[in-house]
Computed example of a mutant assay.
Amino acid sequence: MPQMAPLLWLYLYMFFLIGFVIFLMVNYFIKPFETIDSNIISKSPSNHLDWKL
């Protein structure tokens, strides 16, 4: 029925908006992974020998 097409687009638009808001909230509240400090890596003893020319 052609009369139902505007309602279909309205439902799709509302679904997109709700999904987008949930996506933004999850990305805002979830903490990103902690980066590894490069100073700790350089101070740790390495088991491999560096190539020298």
Rank of each mutant, 00 (worst) to 15 (best):
M1G: 10
M1N: 11
P2G: 13
P2H: 07
Q3T: 06
Q3H: 08
Q3E: 14
A5L: 12
P6T: 03
P6M: 00
P6K: 00
P6S: 02
P6W: 01
L7T: 10
L8V: 15
L8I: 14
L8F: 05
L8N: 03
W9E: 10
L10T: 12
L10Y: 02
L10H: 04
Y11E: 03
Y11T: 12
Y11Q: 15
L12K: 11
Y13A: 15
M14C: 12
F15C: 04
F16T: 13
F16L: 15
L17A: 15
L17Q: 11
I18F: 09
G19T: 01
F20R: 12
V21K: 09
I22H: 02
F23T: 12
L24P: 00
L24N: 05
M25W: 09
M25L: 14
M25P: 00
V26I: 13
V26L: 11
N27Q: 13
F29Q: 02
F29D: 02
P32T: 03
P32L: 01
F33L: 06
F33Q: 06
E34L: 05
T35K: 15
T35H: 09
D37V: 06
S38I: 13
S38K: 12
N39S: 13
N39C: 01
I40E: 07
I40A: 14
S42T: 15
K43A: 13
K43S: 14
K43M: 10
K43H: 09
S44P: 00
S44C: 02
S46A: 04
S46C: 05
S46D: 09
N47P: 05
N47F: 10
L49E: 08
L49P: 00
D50R: 09
W51T: 03
